[in-house]
Design a protein around this nucleic acid. Structure first.
Lengths: 143, 143
DNA sequence: CGCCATCATGAAAGTGATATCCATTGACAT
DNA sequence: ATGTCAATGGATATCACTTTCATGATGGCG
């Protein structure tokens, strides 16, 4: 899975005539081996300890590149930071966001998707994408 | 309806020991008699022509106040601006957002809400609120 | 190899929207 | 009418990006 994404990214890069660099390799590794909803800041800080020579701008640009390459997706959960999540081919999911600890869980629900399609249709609307987020307290924070 | 909200806001203000001012009255009137999804900027510009003496900061603070008072709600639709929509008591709705013209339609769907509750329950999650937005092309822009 | 046209990098500066500061003004209980 | 404390608005600060620019790498070509 990590391998598949690395390959996909490498292909995207060569198609666009972009270069492979140490920084990009490091950032990709770190991104793939981390939590699914990192912000630029978080990833930057995570890298900073082992690779103090990687700049914020590079992390920023590289994450954008991941998004363009289709291996990451930009998401907003209302905390003022853009987060990047891993994209797995053909898979779609929505989110449960804990308002206390910030923890994000994912879920999938076919029935909801179907109902969304019906709503769109009844409004003559053509859906490109959607977002569904449930905010509240996660199981741990309820106690 | 406008009357009810004015009253609700007045009550909120006096409970908090806050003062009634010309500016707040004007901003509330303008907010209530406008489109349901205004940004600060939009409301500020709308007011500017008739009331050039009202500052941006006042519009900003007053909208926040509306949100605290429960007569408005802050929303993000991904265009980089916070929008304020009217809150009608006990009513909840979701949104269809046109990615071409920016038009926002509202809809309600009980069945979807019910399924959301089930999802939350199965994760031990306690829902406080949710957001559901369908992005795509509105009926007009499809042509 | 060595060249060199390009692309990439990182520090710093720029942006745009939101948030706060502060000197002045206004509201309202007494 | 007056004192007190909140409100106002212009200006400034903040925050999270986003872009600039001088310097450093990359990799195709001879």
């Amino acid at each position: 899975m990590k391998r598949a994404k690395k390959k996909a990214f490498a292909e995207f890069m060569s198609q666009r005539g972009l270069k492979s660099t140490k920084q990009r390799d490091i950032i990709l590794d770190s991104f793939l081996s981390s939590d699914r909803h990192l912000s630029i800041e978080e990833l930057y800080l995570k890298l900073r300890s082992k690779h103090p020579n990687i700049g914020y701008a590079t992390v920023y640009r590289t994450l954008k590149l991941f998004a363009e390459a289709g291996i990451a997706r930009e998401m907003q959960f209302g905390d003022g930071q853009t987060r990047y999540e891993h994209v797995s081919e053909g898979e779609h999911h929505d989110h449960l966001v804990c308002t206390r600890c910030g923890h994000i869980e994912e879920f999938e629900n076919e029935a909801i998707e179907k109902l969304q399609d019906e709503v769109a249709e009844s409004h003559g609307f053509l859906i490109e994408r959607h977002r569904l987020e449930l905010y509240g307290l996660c199981a741990t924070c309820r106690k």
